[in-house]
Simulated scan of single mutants.
Amino acid sequence: MDMGESDSQDIASQDIAQESPAQHVFIAPSLDQEAILAGASYTHHSAIPEIVTENSSTECVLGVDEAGRGPVLGPMVYALLYVPLTQHRSLLAQTHRFDDSKVLTPTFRSSLMKTLCTPGTDLFQHCGWATRVMSARDIGSAMLRPAGTYNLNAQAMDATIDLIKDVFAKGINVREIYIDTIGSPAVYQKKLERIFPTTMITVAKKADSLYPCVSAASVCAKVTRDAALEVCYQTYASVADAQEEPQTAAEGWGSGYPSDARCTTWLKEHVDPLFGWGSECRFSWGTAKDLLEAKGTRVDWPVEDDDEQGMRVTDFFSARPDGETEKETNELTTWFGRPVAEEVF
């Protein structure tokens, strides 16, 4: 995926309100403020539910989904949630009404996550979950590699596979896995079936609206991303604002999507001509690239002298300084090993 394709992930204007963080988003244990402010990616796993640890034969269903694939601001978060098969639809869909996080209000998403993280609740007792927070800095740097570009699909797939492997490593008896697709469902499913051959795997479009465990995973991902956006935004809040009611990310840069006018306005008003923005911005996105080209400082790097091009490391050891013996010079020039004649082989 190139810079231009990234911005094709924009959302319709009527969906922006649903994508914006809640006014008082729940701060889940999956929020590592220090890592987020440092622009670092990290993984969080909840405690394994007692109902699963007490009986290792308990068969579980696991769902995976993401939040924040298309925004130019903030991390992309992958999440999974597992629950005993016997509780899958009754607990998640019927009792707590989990659904695709994009059709739930920000406040309701936040309340579901709070219940999931509160000891003593039925969700806490039966569900385990995990998140992989992929920072904007790491996403951008991987996509802008001069060689061997690590595109967004590959990053997302690796995050999914690593999260699932972590759950198996903990001894969870996962019998069924449901995943919202990345690209072609059939191709993605075949790859996962090769990696996890003993598990029934279903990869489908709109899986977050079809399978409750995927819906619950989407809520974990979205609430974690919302809280991360809030942490990132507060670094820009002025001292005067901090003394009053703290301004939320929804009021400042909104959902973080390029199609959100609050986001593009914020980017234009806060661009540094030399450094652009902080680690909350995906510099590989076309939106950020275009703004930097229009408002940034142009830097012309000097061309190296011709006589310095093509030099090898050992060339720096070829001349003997005054007073150095021939033996000492030879030791330096053979530092990396001596050539071996073909006859040896």
Rank of each mutant, 00 (worst) to 15 (best):
Y211K: 05
G286N: 14
V187D: 10
E304S: 13
P339V: 12
I48N: 09
Y211M: 06
A136Q: 04
R109H: 10
I201V: 09
D272R: 10
K222S: 02
F283L: 05
E326V: 15
R97L: 09
L123W: 03
A38C: 08
D307A: 11
D122E: 15
A28P: 02
S41F: 00
D2L: 07
R298C: 05
L73H: 07
A204L: 06
G171M: 08
H126P: 02
D10A: 13
A79Q: 02
G252F: 03
I182A: 03
A237Q: 14
A341V: 13
K114D: 09
V203R: 03
G310I: 04
I139M: 13
G323V: 07
A159S: 14
F168G: 06
P84D: 11
A147N: 12
T264A: 05
R312M: 15
V133M: 07
G276D: 05
G323A: 08
A237K: 13
E304R: 10
R225C: 04
P302H: 09
Y257P: 01
G254A: 01
L81G: 05
E324N: 02
V344G: 00
C281G: 03
G256L: 04
H45G: 08
A204N: 10
A242R: 15
E176P: 01
S57W: 00
V187N: 11
H126V: 06
A221S: 13
H270V: 12
M76T: 14
S110Q: 12
E331R: 12
P29H: 03
